[in-house]
Design a protein around this nucleic acid. Structure first.
Lengths: 402, 402
DNA sequence: CTAATTTGTTAACAGCCATGACGAAATACT
DNA sequence: AGTATTTCGTCATGGCTGTTAACAAATTAG
């Protein structure tokens, strides 16, 4: 039969509690009155909500704030920097990292390790990750934070709602079930594509996420992407959205590992760019050499990067025509080449998106992500925190159960 | 100041009223008890909701239904086929149409007219449309339906939330404000891109819209598209999403009117296909001739259509890689060429979407829309009805005010 | 020092839904 | 046939939630 179904009454209460938490997370310390106008409830109602949250030690009252204007100054409320925290982890091709963010979203703990995960058995990699997680947990404990969930970033395909890595070409993984290999003492664990989490970090790093919309490109060995429209991440029917790397750039171009031809990755993937610049991509050799040559003005290197930028522009122009984002953000390791990569990218994109541009005030902004390579890790921790904030009942129960 | 903000209490009531309406719209006649389990409320609560809706003449009680199983049979409820109705209108390149759908979504009235709108002044076209709307309204009146809103489909760019046509190349319109030209006695009027409404019609024509996700291609003179993921239409930051026609297929291909090169429209637009088949596309000459030649097996015609299918496949493979839809639907006039268009399209799409396909059970279904050229018109009426169902307060007020 | 403004709290109130019990209307079993 | 069982719709009760309105507290403006 239909399960009891949370009574819509208490559901409303939960929703309002969650709204208070999210409002404070997004706008820092606020008074009860301000929160009330933000979420459209009366001061009286917010008072009782805040009372509940204070009792559960999720909020801290800071006392009367600065009195800039007339009237009694409100008592500032902020999310606690002790108590629940969200963990984020990243499995990169050559590094592992774990971090913890408090409810405000502040990164409080961070441990990482150079580790060539490429073509290593999942057990070995996850063993290292668990060790890092133990250290992070201990450090979090030291500053009064207790785990309330973990999100893991993986450079591969993860079916929606699972903890399985279906394919991670750059790790050499296929059909790897992570369930038993993940840290078990950090609360609920979810696994996501690295580009999706990078995009979420980008979304949350700016004001008014609800009104934002962009295509986030995670360009490194593989090229992933994530699409955010109306402040929501598009994950696709199976959770595989974002395979920008296999969007065709030239239909009869060079064959790609995916079976297609002329995919973006064959032009703008890290290996393709290095090769085009005359650098043999070895296991250690990455973009450092190429950046140096570009800075030195070496023509072959510049040409290779320009070609990649053009290809990115062509692929993105398709995405932009189809999705009408507010902006385009480039993340991943390739951002180190941004000075040389972005101009041709912008030019190509501008040429090919004139129709929709007719209604735009200014040209579509294309920028490198300010978070740089940290995006996915921060996004993971942020997701864990947001998920926690979505379920105040659980947070409060955990506080009581202490 | 912050406006009164509908008190979340009555908001909940409104939401539940709306849920009852939508449940009945989606699943036809149901008993109170069934509705209750569907929306997760108790029978008692649903009884009072239904009471309100019956009083407002939005529902009709049909009495005890067939008693298939044990227990007292429930009294079947259905949405009324008298009372409020949604109007849909379509401004096509060579025809105008207006229809009215009752709350159940049934099309009850339909009037249309051959009318070459191409390069006619908006005033003239809208004058004709208003005349059609008057006739439709009169007919609706005759069967006891009263207007509760109108949605208009236009083959062009409509900024989100406006009634302005920014560009409609195939009508020859630019920056046309329709506000004063639209029928004024049908309730609230909204204007939308034709492909978006076609996609919505497709969405609503199948079971469980909430779980659906697809790319709908509206292929005719211009090629538009609409993306639905998680049962929601993506409209883009400005409302311009869906410009599939200007997705690059071959970056150095023939120049396109948009300023780009090798856009899909230069390969698969109606004019391009006709020309490639050796048919001069005159104002009256459309696809009839081409269909005939394909049926006759004429090689030039077949080659032209095959080429268009391949180009569509290339452009769509980009969209599929990026968005991971559950299926792809082809609508618009070009569906008449489906038997020859779809095979090359499917082949190309299959080749280029292998990565994500690794996680798919079956190949991505690519089908012609069963609604054919009626999609946008039905979608428009459907949208008007759904919008009405979203606001039970207004419907009830209108019923009282009668 | 008074008036005006804003904040947070309190008490009375109204709305909404859940709970549990009931009669009604059908089927299933003896 | 007659009883038990199942399901439906309704009713009275009660709990929870947020609103309204009034008030004291704390600040600025004049």
């Amino acid at each position: 039969m239909a399960q009891p179904a949370p009574t819509p009454q208490s559901a409303m209460r939960q929703l309002n509690l969650s709204r208070v938490l999210h409002t404070l997370a997004a706008e820092g310390p606020l008074s009860r009155a301000t929160v009330a106008t933000r979420i459209g409830l009366t001061r009286a109602a917010v008072s009782t909500l805040v009372e509940t949250l204070l009792r559960g030690r999720l909020l801290v009252e800071e006392g009367p704030g600065r009195s800039g204007s007339v009237g009694r100054p409100g008592s500032q409320l902020r999310l606690t920097d002790r108590g629940p925290c969200g963990f984020g982890a990243e499995i990169g091709v050559d590094h592992l990292a774990v971090c913890a963010a408090d409810l405000r979203g502040e990164i409080r703990v961070r441990v990482e390790k150079e580790f060539r995960a490429q073509h290593r058995a999942p057990d070995a990699v996850l063993g290292e990750l668990r060790a890092l997680a133990r250290r992070a947990r201990a450090e979090a404990d030291g500053v009064g934070l207790r785990p309330a969930g973990l999100a893991v970033a993986v450079p591969g395909l993860v079916p929606r709602g699972t903890t399985t890595v279906l394919r991670a070409p750059n790790l050499g993984w296929r059909d790897v079930e992570l369930a038993g290999l993940l840290p078990a003492d950090l609360g609920e664990v979810t696994v996501h594509n690295e580009a999706s989490l990078g995009g979420l970090a980008e979304l949350w790093s700016r004001g008014d996420p609800a009104a934002d919309g962009f295509v986030y490109v995670s360009a490194q060995i593989g090229i992933g992407a994530c699409v955010v429209l109306d402040g929501r991440l598009l994950s696709g029917a199976h959770g595989f959205a974002g395979e920008l790397g296999h969007v065709p750039v030239r239909p009869e171009g060079p064959p790609c590992g995916c079976g297609g031809r002329g995919c973006l990755e064959t032009y703008a993937g890290e290996e393709a760019v290095l090769r085009a610049a005359g650098i043999e991509p070895g296991p250690g050799v990455r973009l450092g050499a190429l950046t140096a040559r570009c800075e030195a003005g070496e023509p072959t290197a510049l040409r290779a990067v320009r070609r990649a930028g053009t290809a990115l522009g062509i692929a993105l122009s398709g995405a932009v025509n189809l999705l009408d984002p507010r902006r385009v953000v480039i993340g991943g390791t390739l951002t180190r080449l941004a000075p040389w990569l972005l101009p041709p990218l912008r030019r190509e994109l501008g040429r090919r998106t004139a129709v929709a541009a007719g209604g735009r005030e200014t040209p579509l902004p294309v920028t490198a992500s300010p978070l740089g390579p940290d995006g996915p890790l921060r996004g993971a921790a942020g997701l864990a925190v947001r998920t926690a904030l979505d379920d105040p009942a659980r947070l409060l129960a955990a506080a009581r159960g202490d």
